[in-house]
Nucleic acid binder design. Structure first.
Lengths: 337, 337
DNA sequence: CTGTTAGCGCCTTCAC
DNA sequence: GTGAAGGCGCTAACAG
């Protein structure tokens, strides 16, 4: 900047004004400066500008378990879309389910002065995500409600989706319905299990614990658990799977079973309609989860603007994204038993 | 920082040293400082630190068409993994195939002083990605070789993969093999088409242009194109599809065809083994593409370190990721014709 | 081991 | 319309 100023015989202030399109500079001078800028290939240093103006980075962070999971990839796309509208970029990071890594990532992002954070947290205690501990960094949770902190969140209707799926199987004549779930300690895991249990109960069916398997969502484990359920003397005629990993594991196991087993899985699966199997899915717009989270986040970021008005609490918001059951049963599905 | 220094009656230098874990400070003083830091909830300002030290941001950028495409999501995971090892974060952005947006993203990222950029470029002219025009920002291309600029790149063996897939179909007895390809103007499109053509030629078969359809990879278009090919009086008995979108479109169309049609598609597909269809895929490690790209990028970032030694050109590097054909044909595949 | 001085590149403020 | 001071928060480079 100095260089350009010297070269043109003006002060660096003039260059600064020209670059920012500030008013209070003659058109002629501005022209000259911008020409020189282009010629030298000079780019203003964002760091210095922000240091001076105290602005945060126009970057928001997204912390998820694993970006390769289609759900999180879609979530990222949603967050990115809204961030772009606000002129912001998106920093992504995967925790691989490691709480310590989550802690570290959050600290890093706060230190880097990102403008805000969307987090799909690993554990149940979210106190390390408190904005107050993070230099007032706004935080929004996705997929999980906050616990121990007071921030906005976007949830999926885990309970309702599983409930509907369960009722649909029952309506189709199933009475022995198994459940392939996530660990009971996870919020999504327990909500989806609750939907299953309520679906049974409201239909006057008794939940048989032998039909329930809860474990971290992993294709191998799900396949093994499915085989175990199907090996019972009175095996389930239908299974509810609590996420896409479980669904895929179950699909593989079910293929080798003599009698047909109906499946209803949380999360949609591409190509589900091409499988020659009776499969329903609980579908929802994962990108919309991201978009809503980003909207909430930018709402907080912008309200922080004026001055940390400590009494700006409008109360925290909680948005729930709807689910709906999609049947991929290509033919009629012979009601078993 | 000043506040902490004042509160403890030391200089800000002492605080700085304690925070950075610099040597040359007594353990006792360090303790006291760190305690105060924790008490006040102070976080060092990364911006100021970098401004002072002249370090680039520990952030690298990744620009792709669409993060929701599994290939790009995997790529991102690979880049992120290597970036993490280098203590860097990852900024992602999707162009949605829009060249103007790509231009703008690149400019933004350069202005934000990211440390480097991995780009899967939209078009064929890459001059706007020249590091020289981007404040010496190191750039690595993925999936496409550079044109008009001189940078490192990571490629997939598009030609070889398609060639092998074609030969495999021929070995299985197919003679009328169709091709569902990407636009000929795309590098990957033309390489994969070349692999198909060479596969036929080396087997002494003649390429029948009626069997070739080239369009942007879109499930709907691919399905329509497939139906058209299969409506010919002497339809192909096998199809090669140039990417996962084409493969899925073809799968949908083939389902409703009376006689079996073998498919061989570029890009692996989850659940491919569960489809009751004769499908082979050209598989490769998409995350490895990202890891290699990141390795090359950090190589450049680190060599820039000392001083822009203008004669550091070791020549640009080009890494090719291998492909291999995976058969998902569950049973034997009745050689047609 | 600790403090002082100076300045990273830019922008706010106030003169002119 | 333009320029001169001064400082954002931090840390090299030297002193003590």
């Amino acid at each position: 900047m100095r260089e350009i100023a010297a070269r043109l015989g003006v002060s660096s202030m003039t260059v600064s004004r020209a670059i920012r399109g500030d008013s209070g500079i003659s058109a002629a001078t501005r022209e000259r400066v911008l020409e020189a800028v282009a010629a030298v290939g000079y780019r203003p240093n964002d760091l210095a500008r922000r240091l001076r103006t105290g602005e945060a980075h126009e970057l928001v962070g997204l912390i998820v378990t694993n970006l390769a999971n289609p759900f999180y990839a879609q979530l990222a796309v949603g967050v990115e879309a809204v961030a772009t509208v606000h002129g912001a970029g998106l920093v992504v990071a995967s925790t691989n389910g490691d709480l310590e890594r989550e802690r570290q990532l959050v600290r890093d992002m706060a230190a880097r002065r990102l403008a805000g954070l969307v987090v799909v947290p690993v554990g149940n205690d979210h106190r390390h995500l408190s904005p107050r501990r993070l230099a007032d960094l706004p935080v929004v949770l996705a997929a999980v409600p906050p616990r121990g902190i007071d921030v906005d969140c976007v949830l999926v209707d885990d309970f309702g989706g599983t409930y509907e799926a369960c009722r649909a199987l029952i309506a189709r004549g199933h009475r022995r319905i198994g459940f392939l779930g996530l660990p009971a300690s996870l919020w999504t895991g327990s909500e989806r299990y609750r939907g299953y249990a309520a679906g049974l109960e409201d239909a006057g069916l008794v939940l048989d614990p032998r039909y329930v398997s809860q474990h971290r969502g992993d294709v191998q484990l799900a396949a093994a658990a499915t085989r175990k359920l199907l090996a019972l003397s009175d095996p389930p005629t239908a299974l509810i799977t609590a996420n896409n990993r479980n669904t895929i594991g179950a699909l593989r196991a079910v293929r080798h079973h003599p009698t047909p087993v109906a499946l209803a899985g949380f999360d949609d699966i591409e190509l589900a309609d091409l499988l020659q199997l009776p499969l329903s899915v609980v579908s929802y717009d994962a990108a919309e989860v991201g978009r809503e989270a980003a909207r909430l986040l930018f709402g907080r970021i912008e309200e922080t603007g004026p001055r940390p008005t400590d009494e700006r609490r409008t109360g925290t918001q909680r948005v729930v994204i709807a689910t709906h059951v999609v049947d991929h049963q290509q033919d009629e599905d012979p009601p078993p038993q």
